[in-house]
Design a protein around this nucleic acid. Structure first.
Length: 764
DNA sequence: GTTGGTATCTGTGGA
DNA sequence: AGATACCAAC
């Protein structure tokens, strides 16, 4: 079949891709390896739907980032023209917020509800923990928040939480038995404040569809005739439950297509579960699901692809697939070892320069990826020193800066005075003589009467001066709220900036940082002005509504990515998580050390390690041509020098894909241990308690050594002392063969063993 | 209520 | 090291 005429875009697809695009009716699962043209399939599929006569507004595409949604729309537009803009394509959060905006009142929320960001949530939780007189050290706010978040992501309401013995006993073991109560109070407080947190945007939509007031469920089932979900491996139970509500019912055509890669699932901490992919297959099996596997990688050269393939085999469960590339062998993986984090920074920057010169790479071809955002500093330092332009993504986004959040809090308050977190933030900033005692009293009144903080404000038993301040504050907010119908968002913001004293406060701070803050503050005002003046594309939509409420609702879901200018020539610095879906000619994955990558937080469980390994898989598969991994023997953390061993992931890359001038990490380590022990007396040698000398890992009675000639790379073998291992590679001539073997259970897992002396039993 | 100094704590990822 | 929480003195 040779597609002709207007279907010519089909020519740009390989066989499997085309089948996935053309299977428009009924349930479809696309398992897409890295660089396999996943986005191309999704966009062409939508284009194909439109060409075949579907109306743009019949199609709903859910992504995880605004960037992905935006990209998709742009690419659809290239194929089908401007009607692409009428397709519903957005993030789960923004799309659901948009629907909730319309339907909120059906579930007891105002349509101008506030969206609480993580800081707001944590601040509210802190208040609740305090009010309940609980020990805030026992109730770590991040832990509490994530418990509540994952409860919501698993469809567990406060009521269900109370009755859930498993969760309750986990809480008791963690010495925080009152999480259930906190969860209940938190939910009530959000509702009373007319606020939804990020999880609520999903949960409340589910609740809406579930309770189905005024046949609202049917309305959306009819509206979205085709549903597509990107990065399905990163959905949580709640998201999948919503998807099922929308498409999986009697008489439904079940036109749903989900695209994902189990090997790239890296958001389990956010409640995502690979189980969703497996469930999807089972749930739609009775309805003729079709599964397509995209296995050809168009992004990377072979050494990189094979290294990635090999690394991921160390994970337990996975959907079988073999990613391959026909782009030639390309360069081997380069490994940089450094003594200190500073040396790592310098050598990475050196290599950046070298690659720019030798291979004529541009800054924008290069990215430095790290496990934690705090690692960015040292690379910034050296790149700046070398005069290489760079851009850091992640970390504090523009909208999270204090000066920006302060003004936004005022604006939030004008739109929704019940917004307690906004109110608490600005009631005494700039200072107007309303202190903690007064604020606490107001909180108590609100709690005892079951009213919002705002409504309790005038009842505050305070000094005459404080009362006057409060009255004035109320007046200011009410005054601004009155203008909401007549003034546009910018006029209101400018008014509040002046009237609140914020603008003056910032102008009076002449320090360097203070000037920076003023700049940000003004940039925010400019941004609001631009929103009013132009057809600003904020999310993926051209927003027709210029109200302050619309503005606030949109920026609440923006991240750093969406603000930074995407053009320009700079080296990209970002976390591995943030790099998902991106590609660069040259990738540096830095900080390849035990306890950092894999993170110490994830090291004690197999599931945790598997997720870290998938994260590493994502990192290395971002590279098209050059992949450099680096680690440092020591680095500063919390003002203290810490020593780490090279990451176990390094040892999982077979030697034949690694640049040979670099010795393997485990043998490096022996040298480095010796030198650093001399240099620094405090260096702690690993105790051998569970190391190789602590005795046999294998029962000598059942151990049957195999003939050494039979040992080959890739085999699983058993060693008397070291236990089970995997032969990574074999080198050396006949009679002198040396095997590099990875033994999972020992401290320095990668070992070089002379086969003529070794006793090894082949396991498979 | 506000200010400024000191103790304490933090140890991943992000919509 | 850097942010935040807490506390004593104004």
């Amino acid at each position: 079949m040779t597609p002709t005429g207007k279907f010519s875009y089909l020519d740009e697809l390989n066989d499997v891709q085309r089948q996935a695009v053309e299977a428009t009716e009924g349930p479809v699962l696309v398992v897409a390896g890295p660089g396999s043209g996943k986005t191309r399939v999704l966009t062409y599929r939508i284009a194909h739907l439109l060409e075949k006569g579907a109306a743009p507004w019949d199609v709903l595409t859910l992504t995880f980032t605004n960037k992905a949604a935006r990209e998709m729309k742009e690419r659809i537009e290239k194929v089908v023209g401007p009607k692409a803009n009428k397709v519903w394509a957005g993030t789960f959060h923004s799309t659901f917020a948009r629907i909730l905006r319309v339907e909120a009142e059906k579930i007891g929320y105002p349509s101008n509800f506030t969206i609480y960001d993580t800081e707001d949530s944590k601040s509210l939780l802190r208040t609740i923990v305090k009010e309940m007189n609980l020990d805030k050290n026992a109730y770590n706010i991040n832990t509490v928040r994530s418990r509540i978040s994952s409860a919501k992501s698993n469809l567990i309401t406060p009521k269900l939480y109370v009755d859930n013995e498993e969760l309750r006993s986990q809480d008791r073991m963690a010495k925080m038995p009152h999480v259930a109560t906190i969860y209940g109070k938190y939910t009530a407080r959000c509702k009373r404040s007319g606020a939804m947190d990020f999880d609520d945007l999903l949960y409340r939509l589910y609740e809406l569809l579930q309770s189905n007031p005024d046949g609202v469920l049917d309305k959306y089932r009819k509206k979205f005739k085709y549903l597509l979900v990107d990065e399905f491996q990163d959905t949580n139970q709640l998201q999948y439950a919503i998807v099922r509500k929308l498409v999986n019912y009697d008489q439904s055509p079940r036109n749903i297509c989900v695209v994902g890669d189990d090997a790239q699932s890296i958001y389990a901490f956010r409640g995502a579960t690979i189980q969703n992919i497996l469930d999807f297959e089972a749930d739609f099996k009775p309805h003729g699901i079709r599964v397509f596997k995209l296995e050809q990688n168009y992004r990377s050269t072979d050494h990189i692809v094979q290294a990635a393939n090999e690394v991921i085999t160390y994970n337990r469960r996975q959907i079988q697939k073999k990613i391959w590339s026909d782009k030639g062998d390309g360069q081997r993986v380069k490994i940089i070892k450094a003594m200190t984090d500073a040396e790592e920074g310098r050598r990475v920057a050196d290599t950046v320069l070298e690659q720019k010169n030798r291979y004529h790479l541009r800054n924008s071809d290069i990215a430095v990826l790290y496990r934690t955002n705090s690692q960015s500093r040292i690379f910034e330092e050296y790149l700046r020193r070398y005069n290489v332009h760079y851009q850091v993504f992640g970390g504090l986004s523009f909208y999270q800066r204090k000066e920006v959040k302060d003004l936004i809090a005022y604006l939030r308050l004008v739109v929704n005075p019940r917004d307690e977190e906004a109110l608490r933030r600005v009631i005494n900033f700039p200072k107007r003589g309303i202190g903690n005692t007064t604020i606490e009293k107001i909180g108590e009144i609100a709690a005892s009467q079951g009213i919002s903080f705002w409504e309790a404000l005038p009842m505050a038993p305070a000094s005459a001066r404080a009362k006057k301040s409060i009255a004035d504050f109320i007046q200011m907010i009410k005054g601004a709220a009155l203008k909401i119908e007549t003034a546009n968002a910018f006029e209101l913001a400018a008014y509040i900036a002046k009237r609140s004293g914020l603008a003056d406060f910032l102008k009076n701070d002449t320090s360097i940082e203070g000037m920076g803050r003023l700049e940000n503050f003004n940039a925010l005002l400019d941004g609001i002005n631009a929103f009013v003046e132009e057809d600003t594309v904020i999310d993926t939509e051209t927003i027709p509504d210029k109200s302050l409420a619309t503005y606030l609702q949109n920026i609440a879901l923006l991240t750093d990515f969406d603000v930074k200018n995407a053009d320009g020539e700079y080296v990209t610095l970002m976390s591995v998580h943030a790099a998902k879906g991106l590609e660069f000619k040259s990738i540096f994955v830095v900080g390849m050390e035990e306890k950092l990558f894999p993170s110490f937080m994830s090291m004690d469980t197999v599931e945790g390690l598997d997720e870290e390994r998938r994260l590493f898989y994502v990192a290395i598969t971002r590279a098209e041509q050059f992949l450099t991994l680096s680690y440092a023997n020591s680095r500063y953390r919390f003002g203290q020098m810490r020593y780490n061993e090279p990451s176990r992931f390094l040892a999982e890359i077979p030697m034949n894909h690694v640049e040979s001038t670099h010795a393997i990490p485990s043998s490096d380590r022996v040298e480095n241990m010796a030198t650093s022990a001399k240099v620094s007396g405090s260096f702690k040698r690993r105790t051998s308690a569970n190391g190789p000398n602590s005795g046999f890992m294998t029962d000598p009675k059942t151990f049957k050594p195999s003939p050494n000639e039979k040992i080959q790379a890739g085999m699983k073998v058993l060693h008397l002392k070291f236990g089970e291992g995997k032969v990574l590679s074999i080198d050396g001539g006949q009679g002198n063969r040396v095997a590099t073997i990875f033994f999972q259970k020992i401290d320095n897992p990668q070992r070089r063993i002379m086969l003529k002396f070794a006793k090894l039993q082949i396991l498979d």
